[in-house]
């Protein structure tokens, strides 16, 4: 499985370099999603399938959707339609699609090969992770819940539209 790891690593580096050099936020987000997906494949190969699933669901799913929402909210107004025209004209989707196709081929290869060959000798099952998470690290889970509650309240307070009179 070393070959899969190296290909995924190369895809991750290429897509990250492209993500931090794009001028357009949406294009950068596309490459960033590909980078996170390739890191998920790296997790899968080194024997952490649960973390691979969480990487796809939370990072590439939830957090990137937050970014997309904010980028879309900021582009309201007259410039938005011009930008939309510009984005749809070029073939910017080709680059991320090629990189994502490489990752899909890797996943197909991993799924089709027998299970004993996919994982290394030390695969850590989600059950093991859960036992440790709610055992010695229980206080960490509680602190994480407090952190998320604080982030929820903070994001609500900051994102609230203040009345025009008090706006300085």
């Amino acid at each position: 499985m070393e070959v899969v790891f190296y290909i995924a690593a190369i895809v991750a580096i290429i897509s990250t370099v492209l993500a931090i050099t794009r001028l357009n936020a949406v294009h950068a987000l596309l490459y960033l999603i590909v980078s996170l997906l390739s890191v998920a494949i790296v997790f899968f190969v080194i024997g952490a399938p649960f973390m691979a699933a969480l990487e796809v669901i939370i990072y590439a799913g939830a957090i990137m959707v937050l970014f997309v929402f904010v980028v879309m909210m900021l582009n309201l107004g007259k410039k938005a339609t011009d930008m939309e025209k510009q984005w749809q004209r070029g073939g910017m989707w080709v680059g991320p699609s090629i990189l994502a196709a490489v990752l899909i081929a890797e996943v197909a290869y991993l799924v089709s090969s027998p299970a004993t060959a996919v994982y290394g000798s030390t695969v850590i099952e989600p059950k093991q992770v859960g036992i440790v998470l709610f055992g010695p690290y229980l206080i960490g889970v509680e602190l994480a819940s407090m952190l998320l509650l604080g982030a929820l309240v903070g994001a609500y307070h900051l994102g609230r539209r203040t009345p025009e009179k008090t706006e300085k």
Binding site: I63, L66, L147, G150, A151, G154, A155, G159
Partner: peptide, 10 residues
Amino acid sequence: AAAEVSVGLA
């Protein structure tokens, strides 16, 4: 990261 990005985007 989830908490940081929600506050950061706000």
